Amino acid sequence: MYLRKIILAVLLLGLVIGGIFVYYVYGVFFSPNTAFQNEEAFVYIPSNATISDLEERLGPLLKDYASFEAVAKRKQYTERIKGGKYVLRKGMNNNEITNTLRSGNTPVKVSFNNQESLETLAGRVAQQIEADSLSLLNAFRDLTFLKEQDVNIDSSLGLYIPNSYEFFWNTSGVDFRDRMVKEYQRFWNEERRNKARSIGLSPAQVTSLAAIVHKESAKVDERPRVAGVYLNRLRKGMLLQADPTVIYALKRQLNNFDTIIRRVLFKDLTIDSPYNTYKYGGIPPGPITMPDISAVDAVLNAEEHEYYYFVANVENFGYHKFAKNLQQHNRNKEQYIRWINSQNINR
């Protein structure tokens, strides 16, 4: 009888301890453990993160980081921490948080446009993914890569088609660059390549000309007409004489693309640069900016006309007045010069 009581007591004690253990384990695994009040919170885990890195980024978002770490270790996540952007929802438990960090890497949207150099492109992209601007720039400038793509430093900006793309936040500089090459090849499909051939230009030349068109007119509906002017000049063997190329040449000379130049002076037209289309014939050796897709398509679908000149229309700002001959153009230009002088724009 006494032995039976002892056995019963031990069984009851075991049940109590087991119940407490189960309750503790359930609480650690399945009790809500988020400390933020918003419906969602984002956590960015760097590549090659350590447990310390994990605690630094995740700790402020949790009520009890130690309980999370216990679950993460139990599920062997801490042995294989994965970089990326992760979305935590309010009220998540440690089990859900760990599962999210193991397999819930969420893409980020990367957008860029109108960059004038590889440096500014790298800086823009580095604001949106883990890779820093230096690693991106090194990837862009890699000589083996440039040779494989049959481009040089000057023309390589054209490889990056401005748009919005989805990337994982922990994308490296090389992976970003290689993805952009695939996007470039997708953009330059057979239809666009055929159109380029029909006007006697390569995709790289189209991009460089589109960059000028982009700078000349912010009006998408006017760009095919502007493109038609430059194609007419090329066919006739005329200099392009595009002011934006002179501005770009000046910025390169100053090594400062943040310089604001609102007026091209006569002395600027003599600058010795292959980008100065008042001095050198043909299309510049590379794009003076990253042209919008609309500008590229404007060149490929240029308006057919007999215009060879254009100047800003001060009666309809943003647009231009077009002329078929120099006499008509000079009349239009006089009106523009009178207006710009009245604005006291000296540079």
Rank of each mutant, 00 (worst) to 15 (best):
Q185F: 14
Y248C: 09
V264L: 08
N194M: 13
I340V: 10
L146N: 02
K321Q: 07
D268H: 04
V181L: 15
Q127C: 02
R263Q: 03
M92H: 00
R262N: 12
V174T: 12
L269H: 06
K324T: 10
N94A: 01
R141V: 00
M180W: 02
N114D: 08
L15D: 07
V125E: 07
Y24F: 09
I17W: 11
F176T: 11
Y248L: 12
G84D: 08
R233K: 08
K324L: 10
N325Y: 09
K267N: 08
P162H: 11
R141Y: 00
Y77N: 07
D53I: 13
Y248Q: 07
Y230F: 14
V213Q: 13
P287N: 07
P284K: 13
L250I: 06
G18V: 09
Y248F: 14
R57T: 07
Q327W: 14
Q127F: 01
A298H: 02
E96V: 00
I260V: 12
V151K: 06
Y165N: 09
Y65V: 11
V264W: 02
I153V: 06
L8V: 03
N316P: 03
Y65W: 06
N99P: 00
A139Q: 00
R177G: 09
G228E: 09
N170E: 07
L3W: 02
M180F: 03
S133N: 02
Y307P: 10
F30T: 10
F310K: 07
D154N: 13
Q328V: 15
R192K: 14
G104A: 01
M238P: 04
Y248H: 11
L62D: 03
L300K: 05
G237R: 03
E303S: 12
N255I: 12
E166K: 08
V296H: 08
V43S: 07
A41T: 10
A35I: 04
E69N: 01
E130Y: 01
E39V: 13
N344L: 06
E190W: 06
S155W: 07
R177C: 11
K147C: 05
N113F: 00
A227D: 13
R233Q: 09
R331V: 15
A210K: 13
D258A: 12
S133T: 03
G173I: 04
D142N: 15
Q149H: 03
R4E: 06
P244F: 02
N194T: 15
N152T: 06
K82H: 04
I161C: 07
N94F: 01
F30P: 05
L8I: 09
F187N: 13
L234N: 00
L159I: 10
P46L: 15
D297P: 04
T78P: 10
N163M: 12
I17H: 11
A218Y: 12
I129N: 04
R235G: 05
T50F: 10
D268F: 00
Q241Y: 06
H329L: 15
E190N: 14
A9T: 01
Q149C: 07
I212Y: 07
S294D: 15
